[in-house]
Design a protein around this nucleic acid. Structure first.
Lengths: 348, 348
DNA sequence: ATGAAAGCGCTAACAC
DNA sequence: GTGTTAGCGCTTTCAT
């Protein structure tokens, strides 16, 4: 572990960081006055206030937020946690999660909050609360509900202010914000059905709440169209990019006929398309494909990907606003963000 | 601006956060003993240490890091800043930058550091130092050098510990970590030349240091092959995804013949390929295309993208290790991470 | 309008 | 081994 000596350690020329007492001395006033001046209090005369502010600015002095926070018992930092899968030791790479991070950064910056990012082992989700427990952040936004409903409930029961990006589940103590997965799945499947597709495969781990709901949506669309649900067309594969390839191979192995694929994520849709092509299938000619997420690159893929859009900008804002509710001690309802189908060429 | 009342505000049932004094009282010892016990000091008897630790754990007490930092004048948080373009008000979306964020998160987590992410207006780069000036972070990693060489120099002159992802420039006071852009460009162009391409277009804003160096590499490869550099084949376009489309259109407008494109980023390569196709060009048949970055999706594109790989995992680690050098008061040399050409189908 | 003094939650001499 | 005390850099009564 690197040492990172404290700034005041005697490594030569490290000039000591300026502090309020210095400004006070230089201005010939007390620290109280400096504090007030910098805070824009009207208790200090216009003249000295200006003088002190100028001085501070010319010396590039800024208040030490740590000390200020301690004294004022406040904090404008929000924790964002992205669990990683300890088994695969998978690192942060899903473009959708990454975009969410960007969107959260934007939403928080806009409101004057800082964002503390940490990664935790998905199996030790309790650790997600650490930045809160240690007082560094006022609450936690967790991206990736995965299968950890129970652990999340426990965190909420402990009164950790936490908002989770994911699906709304029965008996849920924590607040979630997520896309409307059932409708999303239904839209996707209905679209494929409208294109005349008869055998629609589903790729994705339906044990994950969000994916499960997307599949449920597909089933609903099938039933509405008077078609029956064939379990042989449902292939459970992980969220990793290779998922698409594996799913196609498994489906071919099963030997069930299919003319469409609804994939649990765009990444999976893309690898599915590539694998289908390698096996000589034309997309969308022989197999129509629909993805999920509408990541930045979906439209640039060949063929451009039909997909269900998760409105990431609003998602970020919603996550933040619900968290701030919780932080202020108000209850925060779980939210569903409406999704829409983006029809491109991979399915028509 | 939302209020975010301090935790001790009187909104009903917010139970006060446990603190060391509480543990001390419950254990019947002084706070010093608790402090020592929790720090694992050998000054406290085995027995009381265990007792106190158990107590703390059962009560889910954790030390308030803010107070600890203040007292110990230490900090294990690193700032990561991603400037945004104020003109286009462009938000964080380039997959490469996003991946870099992920890689940094991993590298920092591994070393036990936290990551504070902020976004600043690229025109006000001075603001990038704010998290440092206010004592929240021990140093800054800035992703995106853009055109702000001068402002970065000023930050370094102010002794802000800062490491920048970007190109190494003459008269540079700050530390950079970046790919070897010249070699990268040379590899890409040499590859295209080896494929028998005669008229290689370059897409990208060569005023950006990194892109300029990639172009320089291309020129070098051309000269080595005894070919001449045709300025009409260089098209300056922004880093935005649409850049690729605009570049192709501009090139066609110019009417110069071309049989290859070297694009400044993968995103641009992808949109270029799509636009070329729309105009009836076959890739790689009539036009070979090479990108830059090797983003996650490059291999899944159709055709799979030949590209220059920026090793993002090492990049993250290198950025962090150089920053920690600076923080410890040691000089940190700028680093170039070797790049390699990944040959896929878009160019062969 | 300004200053003195107390204290935010913690650690580290220094006593015993 | 453990407690007492001072103080990290700031804000805020309470005096003046």
């Amino acid at each position: 572990m690197p040492k990172t000596t404290p700034p005041d350690a005697d490594n030569s020329a490290q000039q000591r960081r300026l502090q309020m007492a210095d400004i006070a001395r230089l201005a010939g006033v007390s620290t109280s006055t400096v504090s007030r001046a910098l805070a824009g209090s009207k208790l200090v005369s216009e003249e000295t206030r200006v003088r002190i502010m100028e001085l501070a600015r010319s010396l590039k002095y800024t208040i030490n937020i740590g000390a200020q926070n301690l004294r004022m018992k406040q904090n404008r930092t929000v924790g964002v946690v992205i669990p990683y899968d300890s088994a695969t030791r998978q690192h942060l790479s899903d473009p959708f999660f990454l975009s969410m991070l960007g969107s959260l950064a934007d939403a928080l910056t806009e409101l004057g909050f800082d964002m503390l990012v940490s990664r935790v082992d998905a199996e030790e989700l309790d650790a997600a609360a650490a930045p809160f427990d240690t007082g560094r952040v006022i609450g936690i936004i967790l991206i990736g509900q995965w299968r950890h409903h129970e652990q999340l409930n426990q965190l909420a029961a402990r009164h950790v202010p936490i908002v989770v990006w994911g699906a709304q589940l029965p008996q849920q103590l924590y607040c979630t914000v997520g896309g409307d997965n059932v409708t999303g799945g239904e839209l996707a499947a209905a679209h494929l059905i409208a294109q005349g597709r008869k055998h629609i495969a589903f790729f994705g781990d339906i044990n994950l709440p969000e994916v499960g709901q997307r599949y449920e949506g597909q089933c609903r669309a099938l039933r509405k169209a008077g078609m029956k649900v064939d379990p042989a067309l449902q292939v459970s594969v992980s969220f990793l990019p290779e998922g698409g390839r594996e799913a196609v191979q498994e489906l071919l192995r099963r030997g069930v006929p299919f003319d469409a694929v609804f994939a649990g994520s765009d990444l999976m849709a893309m690898t599915s398309i590539n694998t289908l092509r390698q096996h000589g299938y034309e997309v969308p000619g022989q197999v129509a494909v629909v993805g999920y997420d509408d990541i930045e690159l979906a439209g640039y893929f060949h063929p451009p990907l039909t997909t269900v859009q998760q409105p990431i900008r609003e998602a970020g804002r919603a996550l933040v606003s619900q968290l701030l509710e919780l932080v202020d001690g108000r209850p925060a309802a779980s939210l569903q963000i409406p999704t829409q189908l983006i029809v491109r060429n991979s399915s028509v």
